[in-house]
């Protein structure tokens, strides 16, 4: 796990755009509704790379992205203007 996202589920409206753009399919819709009656997105985080695509498309701006900055992570492809994400992976 090289990355992690934190979703403010009480403010999530369950639009599901983050789920569509997640390249690792590590976000799911929760089975429990929040106080506003929406079924929020829930981070799985098991194979999150911290690319930040979900945070960029989130209309409510409630996703915080964290990334491992220790030595065992390397950036394989730097983010480009037209790319969906920057690819990172764990060093062997």
């Amino acid at each position: 796990m090289a990355g992690k996202i934190i979703i403010d589920t009480e403010r999530c409206k369950g639009c599901g755009l983050c789920i569509t753009v997640c390249p690792k399919k590590s976000i799911v819709i929760s089975e429990i509704s929040n106080r506003n009656g929406y079924f929020p997105a829930q981070a799985d985080n098991s194979n999150c790379t911290g690319c930040g695509a979900c945070a960029i498309i989130c209309p409510e701006a409630i996703i915080e992205v964290l990334r491992d900055d220790s030595d065992n992570v390397e950036i394989i492809i730097e983010p480009r203007e037209d790319s969906e994400q920057n690819l990172i992976g764990e060093k062997a």
């Binding site: 929406y38 930040g52 945070a55 409510e60 964290l66 900055d69």
Partner: peptide, 20 residues
């Protein structure tokens, strides 16, 4: 873990009235 993306200060920390 280091934060690489979070809500910017100029965007007030409140829910919006917009549709999902």
């Amino acid at each position: 873990m280091k934060t690489v993306f979070k809500r910017t200060p100029t965007l007030k920390d409140c829910p919006t009235h917009y549709c999902p």
